[in-house]
């Protein structure tokens, strides 16, 4: 074995260690028996994992995050599916501009989106915090919805809609009868991607938090500023495994990676 032939495997191992390392440290730390967040963990216990479920604010913010991830993603899909359909089926003037604008929240840093929403929507229009968060998460997920649904629409021939019409279906009926069933995988994938994106979103939510209304990641930051025990690590591990589980199931049943 020469040094040259070892170069690529070693680099690969380092990259993997760099990517997975912090995650492993967090997981290890969540089983610590000690009082503070530390690595290597002191002893082994499940007490911090148990504690996560007893913290009142975590329960409330988890509910809020869940509501935003499900509601925001659903709203983004309700807007995004017709938008994707129009973009992929009709030669609309300015379609490329619309596509770019719809994708903008991916490119623009979350901090800026959050600040802009706060300064120009929430404050002047006196929008409630919950509604503001809902709108923000919808806007953040929309690009993913459009992108993923567009990809599966582009793979679907449009003449099947005409075939359905000639067999007696209305145009709208054809959409529900032959388009929707064939892009179901894309819609589910968009939902999962949107859910995970929304759930893990910090910067925008940071600006749009109010008394008693916080998303889980923001709440975790707030908690850590006061208490430095391993329960945050335990919660992080639980969330990570939740995400991994969802994506694993999606890949298994939908071929998720085809759409992303």
């Amino acid at each position: 074995m020469t040094l040259r032939s070892l170069f690529i495997p070693i680099t690969l191992l380092l990259v993997i260690a760099f990517l997975i390392g912090p995650f492993l440290i967090i997981v290890a730390a969540s089983f610590s028996a000690g009082e503070t967040l530390a690595f290597p963990p002191q002893g082994f216990s499940l007490r911090w994992i148990a504690k996560v479920f007893t913290v009142e604010s975590f329960r409330a913010s988890f509910g809020m995050s869940l509501f935003l991830a499900i509601g925001g993603t659903a709203a983004a899909l309700i807007l995004g599916i017709p938008a994707s359909y129009a973009l992929s089926r009709y030669k609309l003037p300015g379609a490329e501009i619309v596509r770019t604008i719809v994708s903008a929240p991916i490119i623009v840093p979350g901090i800026i989106v959050g600040l802009a929403l706060l300064r120009y929507i929430v404050v002047p229009f006196q929008v409630g915090i919950t509604l503001a968060l809902f709108l923000a998460h919808t806007a953040l997920v929309l690009p993913y919805a459009v992108r993923v649904v567009s990809a599966s629409l582009d793979n679907l021939r449009s003449d099947i809609e005409e075939a359905a019409v000639l067999l007696g279906s209305s145009r709208l009926g054809a959409f529900f009868r032959v388009v929707m069933p064939n892009i179901r995988g894309g819609i589910m994938s968009a939902f999962i991607l949107g859910f995970v994106t929304s759930f893990n979103q910090v910067p925008v939510s940071l600006f749009l938090s109010g008394p008693g209304v916080r998303t889980l990641p923001v709440d975790m930051i707030a908690y850590m500023e006061i208490v430095f025990d391993p329960s945050v690590a335990a919660l992080s591990s639980l969330l990570a495994f939740l995400s991994i589980g969802i994506v694993f199931i999606a890949e298994r049943f939908l071929g998720f990676s085809r759409y992303v």
């Binding site: 021939r157 003449d159 099947i160 005409e162 359905a164 000639l166 032959v178 069933p181 064939n182």
Partner: peptide, 13 residues
């Protein structure tokens, strides 16, 4: 009026 498409346009699902 029926139409048999060049691509057949069968419903894949």
């Amino acid at each position: 009026v029926g139409l048999m498409f060049q691509s057949y346009a069968l419903f894949p699902h």
